[in-house]
Amino acid sequence: MELKVTRYEVDDHGIATVWFHRPGRGNSWTNLMNTEYRWIMDTLDRDPEVRVVVLTGSGNQFCVGADTKALNFYTTSEDDYADTVDASAAAQPGTGVNPEFETDVIWQWGLRVPVIAAVNGACAGIAAAITSFCDLRFAAEGIKFTTSTPRLGLPAEYGLSWILPRIVGLTHAADILYTGRVVYSEELLQMGFLNGLFPRETLMEEVYKVARMIATQVSPASVTSAKRQMYAELLHLEPRRAIDDSKELIGHFMRQNDFREGIAAYNEHRPPRFGAPIIDPAVATGGS
């Protein structure tokens, strides 16, 4: 696919970086960006060399939300919104893991790779939802975050009413969703929305430290399994089932090469050399 509003690259450690790439428009979101982003993430998730994805924005912004031209279109259009953003013809990353993940934004939970949001600038509207459904979130100091929707006469969008209370709690979520106010990254850290906060000039360096740890020091099969366990158990809310299922998984993983390698590396005081990741989305767990 020819990419016009996104870009990506993969380094030698298996760390993929994806950029929203409309720097002249604040990296604002469009249907084309959605299509390209889906294609990139599907491509990366199928690549066995990729271990982790870092998502950020080109220039000084992360993503300022929907393009204003698109918003203006809807003030006069009679078209149904759902029809105009139908992505059924686009790539479908994250499918085959859980039917609840097979729709916009939350498909990121169906990916085998963890997705780290590196919020390097303003994050608004749908970008707030995309960031919320990433696995880890880091931001630069002084970054502005807002849902925007109540100030535009719109409801909470793209699952924010579901995910935000689970990240920051009901009290903070109500504040963010009801007021649509600008929340700075320092406050987001206090709320528990962010995993870390860094000066703008060192943000990517710090994020890549975390990404390299995931890419080089842990079993990719274990990471995929933990990701799928965590989000599945968040949905069913059955602690006994979570424990019993984990015991079955432990037995399975103890028969895999990664377990033997992990123990050997620990005993020999050396970095582990883990095998290939889980690629087949139909395989929820397993080792190399």
Rank of each mutant, 00 (worst) to 15 (best):
G59V: 01
A66D: 05
N60K: 05
T75K: 15
V97N: 01
N98H: 11
V64R: 07
L55Q: 11
S77F: 05
E102P: 06
P99D: 00
F73V: 11
V105S: 01
G65M: 04
A70K: 13
V105T: 08
E102L: 12
D67T: 07
L55H: 13
S88L: 04
A66F: 06
D79P: 00
I106A: 11
F73P: 07
V64A: 10
S88M: 02
P93T: 03
G59D: 03
T68A: 12
A66T: 13
Y81Q: 15
S88I: 04
G59A: 03
T84P: 12
V64P: 05
L71I: 12
T75A: 14
A89M: 04
Y74I: 08
G94F: 00
V54E: 03
T68E: 14
T76P: 02
I106Q: 14
A87I: 00
S88N: 13
E78A: 11
G96L: 12
Y81V: 07
F101T: 04
K69G: 14
T103E: 09
V54C: 05
S88E: 10
Q92L: 11
E78V: 02
S58F: 04
A91E: 06
Q92K: 14
D79K: 14
F101D: 00
A66Q: 13
Q61E: 07
L55N: 10
P99S: 01
S88A: 12
F62P: 01
V97G: 00
A70N: 10
A82C: 02
V64D: 12
K69T: 09
T84R: 10
G96Q: 10
G59R: 01
N72G: 14
V64G: 11
N72M: 12
G57S: 10
G59S: 06
E78W: 00
D104R: 13
F73I: 05
N72F: 14
F101R: 02
A91W: 04
V97K: 03
Q61V: 05
E78N: 11
G57F: 01
T75E: 14
A87V: 06
T76S: 13
V54M: 05
V85M: 06
S88G: 12
F62G: 02
A90M: 11
A90F: 06
L55S: 09
V54Y: 00
C63G: 12
E100M: 13
T56K: 02
F62C: 03
F62N: 01
Y81K: 07
Q61G: 02
L71C: 10
D79H: 09
I106D: 06
